[in-house]
C-alpha cells in the first residue's frame, strides 16, 4: 500500500477499541489478528477477574483497566476517550469474543472514504452470517424495526459491535448507558447530531463461545427499561 492509499492510511492511523470482560481465552488471538491489519489496539478490561489484561497486553494491545465492572457501554466510552487523547483520527469498535473478522476493517474504511461519511456501521445482514440461532435472528430483526421507529435511522443491523468513527463523530458522541442499551443510545445520537452514516457488510461468526458470551434474551427487558428511562429523563 502506498501513502496515497486513503484506506491504508486510515488503517495505519486508526485506534481499535475492544471492550472486554472475561475474555482471557480469546482476546490475545483477536488482538494479534487485528494488529496485523491495524496496529493500534486498545483493550478496555472491564474489571475482569481473569487474565484478560495480561493476555491482551501479550497480544500487543494497550490495556485500560476498569477497577470495577461497569458494563460494555462504559468500556466503549473509556476506550474512545483514550483514543481521542492519543490523537486518533479514526476509531473502530470491535468485539473481543472473536465474532468479528479483522478483514472487515478495510471494507469499512473504504466505505467511509467513498461515501464521505462520519460513521460506518457494520451490518451482518448485508454480509455473511454463520450459524445464527433463529431466536437471536428474530430479536435482532425486531430491534431494527424498533430503531427505525425510534431514531429514524434506516439501518439493516442496529446491534453490531463493529463500527468506525471519524474523530469528529467520536468526540461528539457520548455514551452514558453503561450497560447494554448503549447500542440504541449510540444510534439515537447519530440521528440527533445529524452525523452522516453508512452501513458496511461484515462477516459475523457465531461460535459456541461467542453465543455463550453474548446477550441473553432475558437481558432484553433490562435494555428496554434503560432506553425508556433515558427518554423520560432526557
Amino acid at each position: 500500500m502506498t501513502d496515497t492509499d486513503p484506506v491504508g492510511a486510515i488503517l495505519r492511523s486508526a485506534w481499535v477499541v475492544i471492550p472486554a470482560w472475561r475474555e482471557a481465552g480469546v482476546v490475545r488471538g483477536v488482538v494479534e489478528r487485528l494488529r496485523a491489519i491495524c496496529p493500534r489496539v486498545v483493550v478496555v478490561d472491564d474489571g475482569s477477574p481473569d487474565e484478560t489484561s495480561r493476555e491482551a497486553l501479550a497480544g500487543g494491545a494497550v490495556v485500560l483497566r476498569h477497577a470495577v465492572n461497569l458494563g460494555q457501554g462504559a468500556s466503549l466510552q473509556t476506550g474512545i476517550d483514550f483514543a481521542l487523547l492519543e490523537g486518533g483520527e479514526y476509531i473502530f469498535t470491535f468485539d473481543a469474543d472473536g465474532q468479528h473478522d479483522p478483514e472487515s476493517l478495510a471494507r469499512m474504511a473504504r466505505i467511509l472514504v467513498e461515501h464521505n461519511v462520519d460513521v460506518v456501521l457494520g451490518s451482518r445482514w448485508l454480509g455473511t452470517v454463520e450459524a445464527m440461532p433463529p431466536l437471536r435472528k428474530f430479536v435482532l430483526k425486531a430491534a431494527v424495526v424498533f430503531t427505525r421507529y425510534q431514531s429514524g435511522l434506516r439501518l439493516t443491523d442496529t446491534h453490531n459491535g463493529l463500527r468506525l468513527f471519524t474523530r469528529k463523530a467520536a468526540s461528539r458522541i457520548r455514551i452514558t448507558q453503561s450497560r447494554m442499551a448503549h447500542a440504541s443510545e449510540l444510534l439515537d445520537q447519530i440521528g440527533a447530531l445529524k452525523l452522516r452514516y453508512a452501513e458496511a457488510p461484515v462477516k459475523i461468526s457465531y461460535s459456541e463461545y461467542s453465543l455463550q458470551k453474548g446477550q441473553k434474551i432475558s437481558g432484553l427487558f433490562r435494555v428496554l427499561l434503560d432506553i425508556f428511562y433515558a427518554r423520560w429523563t432526557r
Binding site: V42, V44, V68, L70, T78, F82
Partner: peptide, 20 residues
C-alpha cells in the same frame, strides 16, 4: 452515584494505561 463512579473508574483507567 453510578454516573460519578463510572467517571472516576474511567479516569483512573485512562491515567494508567498498560502498554505492551
Amino acid at each position: 452515584n453510578e454516573r460519578v463512579l463510572t467517571e472516576i473508574v474511567r479516569r483512573i483507567a485512562i491515567q494508567s494505561p498498560l502498554r505492551p
